[in-house]
């Protein structure tokens, strides 16, 4: 057991350098950004019997006598009691489809919790945002380094704090210059 802490970081460092090489090679051929790592399973279909659909209108006259522009759709799922209302588009059919999709997502969130597609997407998005933010910081630090050498220490400290998962190292590493990558690896070893 005592051998493990000293061994693990080295393993990380090897992995990071190989992926960075691979990424560097791949980058020259492809410019497209990677999509979701794994495709999500299809949404579970809703049963018509479980739904109460309501087109939300007043009790007044209808037909030719009024000319309403709202085509809001309210959908209630009886087993879970979730109510979804959608009115963003002028088309009732599109509103119906969107309301159904949102309802499916809500039910999935309830059943799967953190594994639901909305949560997975949100995590994916925040990860991307974090890595691009990091890239931005790195870029400006590199610029500042070119200009004056004072701000380097502070930014470097921030950089190390930001690292949490190896996935991020890979992603950031592929696009960044070699020097910050070394800094990241060192940061990992330091822990």
């Amino acid at each position: 057991m005592s051998i493990l802490p000293s061994f693990l970081p080295r393993l990380f460092s090897i992995r990071v350098t190989t992926t960075s090489l691979r990424n560097a090679a791949a980058r020259s051929f492809s410019t497209s950004t990677p999509t979701l790592s794994k495709s999500l399973p299809p949404r579970t279909p809703l049963l018509d019997g479980d739904l109460i659909e309501n087109f939300l209108k007043g009790s007044g006259p209808g037909g030719q006598k009024i000319n309403k522009t709202s085509s809001a759709v309210q959908l209630k799922h009886i087993p879970t009691g979730i109510v979804v209302k959608y009115q963003d588009t002028r088309s009732r059919e599109i509103n119906r489809k969107m309301a159904r999709r949102i309802l499916q997502d809500r039910i999935e969130e309830m059943e799967l919790g953190q594994d639901a597609r909305t949560r997975v997407r949100a995590r994916e998005k925040s990860k991307k945002k974090a890595s691009s933010g990091k890239k931005t910081r790195r870029k400006y630090r590199a610029l500042a380094e070119g200009g004056m050498g004072e701000a380097v220490q502070e930014d470097g400290a921030n950089e190390v704090e930001g690292i949490e998962e190896p996935v991020e190292i890979e992603g950031a590493d592929g696009q960044a210059a070699t020097k910050p990558a070394d800094a990241e690896v060192l940061g990992k070893e330091g822990r």
Binding site: G62, G63, Q64, N67, S91, E93
Partner: peptide, 22 residues
């Protein structure tokens, strides 16, 4: 105006389609 799945052109002088009819 939307009429079912279709987007129908409307002009003054002609009645606007109603979703109830659809």
């Amino acid at each position: 105006e939307y009429f079912g799945d279709l987007e129908i052109r409307c002009r003054p002088g002609v009645l606007i389609p109603r979703s109830d009819t659809a």
